[in-house]
């Protein structure tokens, strides 16, 4: 059986045996499978990107809260709340969380019914990943020698200043490699969006292989796109890592790079 890549130039509305379109990017309002593939990739990227933004924002806050010294009632309670958050979102399987947001949450919060499914999936993905990022933030902060905090306090800084000026700048650099891998994961995890009616890459693969009877070409293309996207994320964050690096801190420092 030979591969037939011209399947991507076929019309998504033409009959089964029709010839590929002369213009692979569509003509006369007819869309080609290539265009559909690109639009599906767009949904994958959108869901992953929005999910990652949500995860990063919440993860930073929750992870930081978990490391606050219990010097006040607020600190102690926010620490416990943050711990509960992490456990809640990492103890439930991702697919189940997506179903909860799509099928169960709108039952209790009718306002969610008006949200599109891709938004709900982004939220579910974001919250799931936020628990993982929070743990990495905590690990980054706790890996710093205690002397750093004590020295900052001795200089007369308040707790908030200690975090903003001393601890977080170093901890965030330390956790960048782990964050890179989390960002790549979210691209791949976004495939669960298929289960709640988002027309992303996995949904495209399942439907297009059925319509074209060219499953091998379709799945190869989709696999390649997932891999390229995850790798692109990896490269972007590698650049970020190199840009923000300061002497003596982070993974690159220790390699002497």
């Amino acid at each position: 059986m030979s591969l037939d890549w011209s399947v991507f130039c076929r019309s998504t509305t033409g009959s089964a045996g029709a010839e590929p379109l002369a213009n692979c990017l569509g003509q006369n309002g007819e869309l080609s499978y290539l265009q559909w593939l690109i639009s599906a990739w767009g949904w994958t990227a959108t869901v992953a990107l929005l999910g990652f933004v949500i995860a990063l924002l919440i993860g930073l806050v929750v992870g930081t809260l978990r490391t606050l010294p219990a010097t006040s009632g607020f600190n102690a309670w926010s620490g416990r709340l943050a711990e509960a958050w992490v456990e809640l979102f990492r103890d439930i399987p991702l697919l189940v969380q997506v179903f909860l947001w799509y099928h169960v949450a709108p039952f209790f919060l009718p306002a969610l019914k008006s949200l599109s499914s891709w938004l709900l999936v982004s939220i579910a993905l974001g919250l799931f990943t936020s628990a993982r990022i929070a743990e990495q933030v905590r690990a980054g902060i706790q890996s710093l020698p205690r002397g750093q905090r004590n020295a900052a306090l001795a200089l007369g800084m308040r707790e908030a200043q200690v975090y903003r000026r001393v601890i977080l700048p170093v901890a965030l650099r330390i956790m960048l490699p782990a964050l890179t891998s989390e960002a790549m994961s979210i691209v791949k995890n976004s495939s669960v969006a298929f289960a709640v009616a988002v027309a992303e890459l996995t949904q495209f693969a399942m439907q297009a292989q059925e319509e074209t009877a060219r499953g091998i070409e379709i799945y190869l293309a989709v696999t390649l796109l997932y891999a390229l996207t995850a790798f692109a994320v990896n490269r972007v964050l590698a650049v970020v890592e190199a840009r923000v690096r300061v002497p003596g801190v982070g993974a690159l420092a220790r390699q002497g790079a």
């Binding site: 998504t12 509305t13 309002g29 949904q203 399942m206 439907q207 319509e211």
Partner: peptide, 24 residues
Amino acid sequence: TGTTTMKLLRKLDLERGMHMQLLP
């Protein structure tokens, strides 16, 4: 997803300019 009906709907949509939103 995975049925011939989805393609049929896209065809109708194009031929009759219906601007349907498909939920897969």
